[in-house]
């Protein structure tokens, strides 16, 4: 590990909560404006988080807090690997482990709402995982490496070769950011059949940890979007940052223009997108490399 990697990891661990919280603040503000409301102050997510920390410490069983803690730790590790320039597959697999810890935490409560949320969360993971793996594979075929450091150091931005995969990835981001129409396992709004789904039984500091891990996760996911555009030059770095903001704005827009859909649509559409946008993109890459000997 070189100095840049160490600095990025430290920056991620220290600053991602701030950036993630701000992002959530903008999210709520923009959503409110789309709905013709004024919306809460920009820093509201932070106020909420601090308030959660001061709640009475209660829990439904002895083990739940442990699983949530593991979820947070592994979420930070996931982003850490990513910003250290590590292997994309290692990043994806660690992310899965973090998600499974959260699912297990919800299952452990044996609460009807939490368990249904948990099984829906597993379903969502199953829905988006193929596209995420295909994304990593796409990077690998183009750059002959899964390592973020190698990908980002290359002068040719990935989006030139991975346009289809980029679209597919943005599609499944809706699930990952927990946006409507695919906020099946939990949502930001408690007035629904699932109550708060996955997070129904979390409260106080435990819920704060969940919130924090979401902020970490969101920043790391935008890092993925960044990766499609970045090539080390200032010009493309600016474009990459703009792309991240645009992608997030798009997700907010989708969130506010769709009602929640049935789980079948989430699975079907994600898999079809993975097969078409992802699969066809891979096919083209293979043809370019094996058929015509092209490569980066």
């Amino acid at each position: 590990m070189n100095t840049t990697a160490i600095i990025s990891v430290i920056a991620y661990v220290a600053l991602a909560p701030a950036a993630g919280g701000l992002l959530a603040g903008f999210d709520r503000k923009i959503s409110a404006r789309m709905q013709g409301r004024v919306g809460p102050p920009l820093l509201q997510p932070f106020y909420d988080l601090f308030k959660l920390l001061e709640k009475e410490p209660v829990t439904v069983n002895r083990v739940q807090d442990f699983y949530v803690l593991c979820c947070l730790i592994f979420m930070i590790i996931t982003g850490g690997f990513f910003f250290a320039g590590g292997s994309l597959l290692l990043v994806i697999f660690t992310l899965t482990t973090a998600s499974v810890f959260m699912v297990v935490a919800a299952y452990s409560s044996n609460s009807p709402y939490a368990q249904i949320g948990a099984s829906r969360e597993l379903l969502q993971i199953m829905a988006y995982e193929p596209m995420v793996l295909i994304t990593a594979i796409g990077f690998f075929i183009v750059y002959r490496s899964f390592n973020v450091a190698d990908i980002i150091a290359h002068p040719a931005p990935a989006v030139h070769y991975l346009a289809g995969i980029f679209l597919g990835f943005v599609f499944i981001l809706t699930i990952k950011f927990r946006k409507s129409p695919f906020d099946l396992s939990m949502s930001h709004h408690a007035h629904q059949e699932l109550v708060k789904g996955l997070t129904t039984e979390f409260s106080g500091k435990t819920l704060a940890m969940i919130e924090l891990s979401h902020w970490y996760e969101n920043i790391f996911l935008l890092g993925f979007v960044f990766l499609f555009f970045a090539n080390g030059t200032t010009q493309w770095t600016v474009i990459a940052v703009l792309a991240c903001l645009l992608a997030y704005f798009l997700e907010i827009f989708i969130d506010n223009s769709y009602a929640r859909m049935k789980w079948q649509i989430a699975v079907n559409s994600s898999w079809i997108v993975a097969l078409t946008a992802g699969g066809v993109n891979l096919l083209v890459l293979y043809f370019a490399i094996f058929g015509f000997g092209l490569g980066v």
Binding site: P57, T59, R62, D65, F66, S111, Y113, A114, V195, E201
Partner: peptide
Amino acid sequence: FFGKTKKKIVPIYMA
């Protein structure tokens, strides 16, 4: 950390 909590145990939410 497993199973070590000093928090009060409360019933689960059942509407």
